[in-house]
């Protein structure tokens, strides 16, 4: 049976669960895993004090129960599968290099922060700074995919250098802040102040948006590369309306205050209907 950790109660303080990833639990018994020390607030406690542990460690690890104060799930993970049955705390999948994390519910802030590879899939919504770099980082996320079925908070994809942050719902304000390259897509639209200081990145908004003054309206077209990316989003399980695949988008070039080789693509349904 897959190694499964079920939270006994909500812990007394925030927990750092990064020591438990498939590669460290593989081949270990429930009793061994229960004895692993993790940090709860300023204390170190055994996993068994906070979780009921069952099964045997394989390439997969399952977490259940009230996980809202469990942080750093799968942080730094290099491979395997990690399933979170519920909502989790901050920094899920931060700096992971490979493997897959699926979260049934919502994720806290910094989900997939500075991701280097692999897939983080969030069936609910994500907090602020999904796929973002940590403060001061020039080049943040450098690969992999983050898929968020719901909404994302502020500054999704900030400082990212490569990879994809795909949001089925809305992205909060400040998406793609100082991004170097890579793609942030929000099918229900990105918030205000998107793409400030963006160098080469693509920000895709499924709803109308008024870009910052650093952006200049460039062209209205049917971008073939975007259609490919949107099809990939469908493969990843997001609902992409047909109109977006076939319709016209407005491309704004910017941020002209940086290299001006980035873009914001905006889907304008009205004009598509008219056309």
């Amino acid at each position: 049976m897959t190694l499964t950790l079920t939270a006994l109660t909500s812990p007394p303080a925030r927990v750092d669960l990064s020591p438990l990833v498939p590669e460290t639990t593989r081949g270990r018994s429930a009793i061994e895993v229960a004895g692993t020390a993790i940090r709860c607030g300023r204390d170190r406690v055994g996993v068994g004090e906070l979780f009921a542990v069952s099964g045997y460690g394989t390439d997969e690890l399952v977490l259940r129960g009230e996980l809202g104060r469990i942080d750093r799930i799968g942080a730094g993970m290099r491979g395997g599968r990690l399933r979170v049955e519920g909502s989790c705390g901050d920094h899920v999948g931060a700096r992971m290099t490979g493997g897959e994390i699926v979260i049934d519910g919502d994720a806290g802030a910094f989900a997939g922060a500075e991701l280097r590879g692999g897939l983080v899939r969030i069936e609910g919504s994500a907090g602020a700074s999904a796929g973002a770099g940590y403060p001061g980082t020039r080049a943040g996320m450098s690969g992999g995919e983050i898929v968020i079925a719901g909404d994302a908070g502020q500054e999704a994809g900030a400082a990212m250098r490569r990879g994809l942050v795909a949001i089925g719902g809305r992205a909060g304000d400040g998406a793609g802040l100082r991004m170097l390259a890579g793609t942030v897509i929000a099918l229900r639209g990105v918030g205000a102040e998107a793409g400030m200081g963006n160098k080469r990145g693509s920000i895709v908004s499924g709803r109308p948006l008024r870009p910052l003054p650093g952006y200049a309206r460039a062209v209205r077209y049917r971008p073939p590369a975007l259609a490919l990316q949107l099809r990939r989003l469908r493969e990843l399980g997001l609902e992409v309306p047909d109109a977006m695949l076939t319709g016209a988008w407005t491309r704004w070039a910017g941020d002209r205050l940086e290299l001006s080789r980035g873009e914001i693509l905006i889907f304008d349904e009205e004009e598509v209907a008219a056309g």
Binding site: G133, Y134, P135, G136, R138
Partner: peptide, 8 residues
């Protein structure tokens, strides 16, 4: 202050 990222 400027190098928060360098020390992490």
């Amino acid at each position: 202050r400027l190098l928060s990222d360098d020390r992490r």
